[in-house]
Design a protein around this nucleic acid. Structure first.
Lengths: 225, 225
DNA sequence: TGTGCGCCTTGACTTAAATCAAGAATCGAA
DNA sequence: TTCGATTCTTGATTTAAGTCAAGGCGCACA
């Protein structure tokens, strides 16, 4: 029986016709990475890029002393590694599977061929890169201009929004990882959660976080206090 | 006499034929901004993007209390504002002329038309956005993983590299602005310069900085001490 | 040749967050 | 169900960097 892999929607390919998408998938090479397995290393030459079919991949930098800063966690449908692939450069980050992950690998050359034939493909990619860039802009803003509690509040609001405004959200990564994503350490995150809890803005039960006072969180976001 | 404006090479338009480039310039609208003049504000709807012909433009975010974080300083030949223009969004940042600046403005619609006809133009944009993204990635990295002296050392090394490995580099922005670009305040930058000076790594004379011990600077970059 | 104004530096102090160290809670597997 | 290992929390301490306040330097311009 030919069981087809479920294909998550791939924003990268949004706006492409069904035929174009089939063409793209045709040049992709299926790969698998186990939990904890490195997909590429900071400094590796980029011979192509990846799209996550299932599982999760974290993209991170390593400081000399070993502390890591997670830049992204990519899930199904999300591409990574396109940037250095395009610029014909080396990967500027590490990539590691957070759990068992299925990937599609697009070798640089075959992809370039596709793009030349197909301007719309390039358009879709441009949209994706734009969105990514916007995201980085916001990350820089929050890292440099806001304190940890503010960043946390913003993260929770955004998470709630992503989950259809649910008052109770569930972290999809553990708190240590969340700390790294917010550019801090677990201890500090723990204290930030306390601060918001003490102000009756949220309630924390493990990975489950209930937003008690959404307006109050927004306030934090804006004023930084 | 028809004095032609000097046209800096525009990476964006690299790979276009002379005719294509003329077409592009034809749809560009010439604008001027005086020193200190705002070009657009965070939140403005993006109706098009700009290319710097001469002068300098800083792109920055503002914290609620007024502190600014500079994201980029763009000089001749560099485009800015394409991202939200492309995503049909609002500008996520402020743009201000650091000095008297000549600009070319490309309205969204006319540019989109060009792009559709011209895959190479799209390729150029992809490369530009990729580079931008790389830059932002590095900015995030340095903001979150490194102390001010380390960021400063990295900046100086990079600047020296940009100026053909010159041992003596000249800051093209004042120290207050540099502080903001490095995600700090003038006082802290001043002290960071002292630290590097005391270790005999650099010599500072106003905006002129001489790199005495390049290897030592690299060391700082890597070890963060 | 002042003098007024940015720009920069310095010192004293405060503060947010990192680090260090110890324990609790949670979870999974034998 | 108990052991072991992560993961998380808490308290004490240190540290980098921000803030506040004052003064100096350089320079354009009258």
């Amino acid at each position: 029986m030919m069981t087809e892999k479920k294909k998550p929607p791939i924003p990268f390919f949004e706006g492409l016709s069904a035929q174009q998408q089939r063409d793209m998938f045709a040049v992709g090479i299926s790969k698998t990475a186990e939990r904890g397995q490195k997909i590429f290393f900071d400094g590796d030459r980029a011979t192509g890029f990846y799209i996550v079919l299932s599982g999760k991949v974290k993209i991170y930098k390593l400081a000399p002393e070993g502390k890591e800063q997670i830049l992204h966690v990519f899930g199904p449908g999300e591409p990574f590694g396109e940037v250095p692939t395009f610029a014909n450069d080396v990967f500027p980050v590490h990539a590691q599977a957070v759990e068992k992950t299925n990937l599609l690998f697009f070798p640089r050359e075959s992809f370039l061929g596709q793009i030349r034939q197909d301007p719309d493909l390039a358009m879709g990619m441009l949209a994706t890169l734009s969105r990514r860039l916007l995201h980085m802009t916001k990350l820089v803003e929050s890292l440099s201009l806001q304190n940890v509690s503010t960043r946390l509040a913003a993260y929770l609001v955004q998470l709630s929004e992503a989950q259809k405004q649910a008052a109770t959200v569930r972290l999809d990564i553990n708190k240590g990882q969340l700390a790294s994503l917010l550019g801090t350490v677990p201890e500090t995150l723990s204290r930030a959660l306390n601060r918001l809890t003490n102000q009756n803005l949220i309630k924390v039960q493990g990975r489950q976080i209930t937003i008690i006072n959404r307006a109050g969180l927004d306030e934090w976001e804006e004023t930084g206090l």
